[in-house]
C-alpha cells in the first residue's frame, strides 16, 4: 500500500521543452522541400487549327522576315547566312522600317517574323533564335515605354496593364511555321 501512495504524489507533468525541437525538425523538412520559384519560359500562342475550306489570308512577301534554322543550328536570315547574334537587330530593323527600306516591312503593324526549322534541328538552336526575336520585341517595347516617361516596359505594364497601346502598336507577330509548308 505505501507504494501506491508514493505514486500518487508524483505530479503529472509532460516535458514541453522538446516541443520546439520537434516543430523545428518539421519546419526544416518543409523549408527544404518547398519550391517557391515560379516557372519561367517563353510564352507562345499556337495558331488555331486551320479549317479545311478556309484559305489563309495572303501576306506580302516583304512583310515577312524569314528565319531558317538548319540541322547544324546555322541561321539563314532572308536567304542570307547569318549569326544568331544578328537576328535581334534585323528584327528591329524589319519591324520599325515603316516602308523606308524595300527589303523590310511596309508598316509596323504588318510586320511578321517567321521561324522555320528542319525536323532535325536541335531544340537548343531553335530556342536561341526564338529568344533573340523575343528580345528584339522586348527592347522595342522598352524604348516605347521610355518615350512615354517610364523607366522600362515592365514599369509601364505595372501601371497600364497587359493590354496596352504599346502592345497594340508593336504586336509580337511571330509565326512558328507549319511543318508541311517546309
Amino acid at each position: 500500500m505505501p507504494v501506491i501512495k508514493k505514486k500518487e504524489r508524483v505530479e503529472p507533468f509532460i516535458p514541453t521543452a522538446s516541443m520546439a525541437d520537434i516543430a523545428f525538425l518539421l519546419l526544416i523538412f518543409f523549408l527544404v522541400t518547398t519550391t517557391i520559384d515560379v516557372d519561367t519560359g517563353i510564352g507562345m500562342v499556337l495558331p488555331p487549327k486551320l479549317e479545311e475550306d478556309v484559305i489563309p489570308p495572303p501576306i506580302k512577301e516583304r512583310n515577312v522576315l524569314k528565319i531558317l534554322v538548319n540541322e547544324q543550328g546555322q541561321v539563314l536570315l532572308e536567304d542570307l547566312p547569318s549569326a544568331v547574334g544578328l537576328v535581334r537587330d534585323q528584327v528591329k530593323k524589319h519591324v520599325l522600317n515603316n516602308g523606308v527600306d524595300p527589303r523590310y516591312a511596309e508598316a509596323t503593324d504588318k510586320a511578321l517574323v517567321s521561324i522555320k526549322t528542319a525536323r532535325e534541328t536541335p531544340y537548343d538552336a531553335y530556342i536561341q533564335v526564338l529568344d533573340e526575336v523575343w528580345m528584339a520585341y522586348f527592347e522595342m517595347w522598352d524604348s516605347e515605354a521610355r518615350q512615354l516617361g517610364y523607366a522600362n516596359y515592365r514599369d509601364y505594364v505595372a501601371v497600364v496593364g497587359q493590354d496596352n497601346p504599346i502592345r497594340e502598336k508593336i504586336k509580337a507577330a511571330i509565326s512558328i511555321a507549319e511543318p508541311d509548308a517546309a
Binding site: G41, I42, M44, L46, K49, T117, P122, Y123, D124, L130
Partner: peptide, 30 residues
C-alpha cells in the same frame, strides 16, 4: 524539352496541341 531533342518531335506535339485546342504554350527555359 531537352536541349538536345530534335524539332521534329516537338512539331508533331505542337500539331497535336493545335488539334486539341490547347493553344497557350510555354517553352520552359532557365
Amino acid at each position: 524539352v531537352d536541349g538536345t531533342s530534335e524539332m521534329g518531335i516537338l512539331m508533331d506535339v505542337q500539331q497535336e496541341l493545335r488539334e486539341a485546342g490547347t493553344l497557350r504554350v510555354n517553352f520552359s527555359t532557365k
